[in-house]
Design a protein around this nucleic acid. Structure first.
Length: 307
DNA sequence: AAAACAATCAACCGCTCATAT
DNA sequence: TATATGAGCGGTTGATTGTTT
């Protein structure tokens, strides 16, 4: 037995909003400030709409600080990197992109960026073959990343073509994906790329200090197609330390350091996946709450097995 | 010029989670 | 503690627009 509908769908208007309806909603929010009760809003505002529809219209379209279209390369990088790391958590991804909504980011990914990412991945794959072994910034530390099992999570470019049940649910079970999924063979960054990426990310509240710059040795400037993937990997390195809460993993190497362990023992592999499945929701809750300067509610994002 | 096809994106649906009672 | 309710989220749909044949 499902729950009762939030409104009488037969009696409320549906479909595209008219300019008059937009103005009614806009003026109501202007005069009343933050909406406390969206369900009650339509009647108060004189709208024959479902409250959920009003909320969606405001959040995705009428809010004054909304940006539409015109995604920058930097935004592409952030979206792809975060998708790769945390999956289709569009609200979280959108929260790192000022002026963007989850719906907008989601549409952008599904219609454009996914193809772009796939094209990049195929380019990488073509150029370097299977032996190259991903690398996403953590290779070169004794980890045979290319042989790792994919995490049960749809991945940016790498394995998103076969999304797992986990990715279809709101409960993301893991956010690994580090090391192989984008297929970038660039395991090191040139100083110029480091500087460029750091500059690009400055306005995403990411400080260069959070990136493990010192770990990367100079390499020849990659081809243009590789550059995008490298920058994405670099963005990932910017965000992943935040995602894992900084030093929560013993090796400080995210998942890369577990590679040999995973190869030796399938039980260890499954344990790692279970561990990652637990760690990331926690870290995310803390990270994003911190980013928003609000405290998460008690127990937010906690994996049941850790509580 | 028109039909077919592809791409885009606003809106909807159903679900989970948090909170109030 | 159980239940009801609203907010928020992610997946999907369908109308519209653009492009190709």
């Amino acid at each position: 037995m499902g729950r009762a509908p939030c409104c009488d769908k037969a009696s409320v208007k549906r479909g595209p909003w008219s300019p008059e309806e937009d103005e009614l909603l806009r003026s109501y929010v202007r005069s009343h400030g933050a909406v406390g009760n969206w369900i009650a809003l339509p009647q108060k505002a004189g709208l024959n709409r479902c409250g959920k529809s009003c909320r969606l219209r405001w959040l995705n379209y009428l809010r004054p600080d909304i940006k539409h279209g015109g995604y920058t390369e930097q935004e592409d990088l952030v979206i792809c990197s975060l998708y790769n790391s945390i999956g289709s958590r569009w609200s979280i991804i959108a929260s790192k992109l000022p002026g963007r909504t989850d719906n907008d980011v989601k549409n952008y990914w599904n219609t454009k960026l996914k193809k772009k990412a796939m094209a990049m991945h195929q380019h990488q794959h073509y150029n370097h073959g299977h032996s190259a072994g991903g690398g996403r910034g953590h290779a070169g530390r004794g980890t045979t990343i290319s042989t790792l099992q994919p995490a049960p999570q749809s991945q940016c470019a790498g394995s998103y073509m076969q999304p797992s049940p986990a990715s279809a649910s709101s409960a993301v079970t893991t956010a690994s994906g580090d090391g192989y999924s984008f297929g970038a063979t660039a395991t090191t960054y040139s100083p110029s790329h480091q500087a460029q990426a750091a500059q690009q990310l400055a306005h995403y509240n990411v400080t260069a200090a959070t990136a493990p710059l010192a770990e990367f040795s100079p390499v020849p400037t990659p081809a243009a197609a590789n550059s995008w993937a490298i920058n994405m990997a670099f963005v990932d390195d910017m965000f992943l330390p935040e995602l894992v809460g900084g030093g929560e993993f013993p090796s400080g190497d995210l998942f890369g350091g577990f590679g040999p362990l995973m190869l030796q023992d399938s039980r260890a592999s499954s344990s790692l996946q279970e561990l990652s499945a637990c760690y990331f929701p926690n870290a995310q809750a803390e990270m994003w709450a911190a980013a928003a300067d609000v405290k998460p509610p008690p127990g937010a994002g906690l994996c049941p097995s850790l509580t």
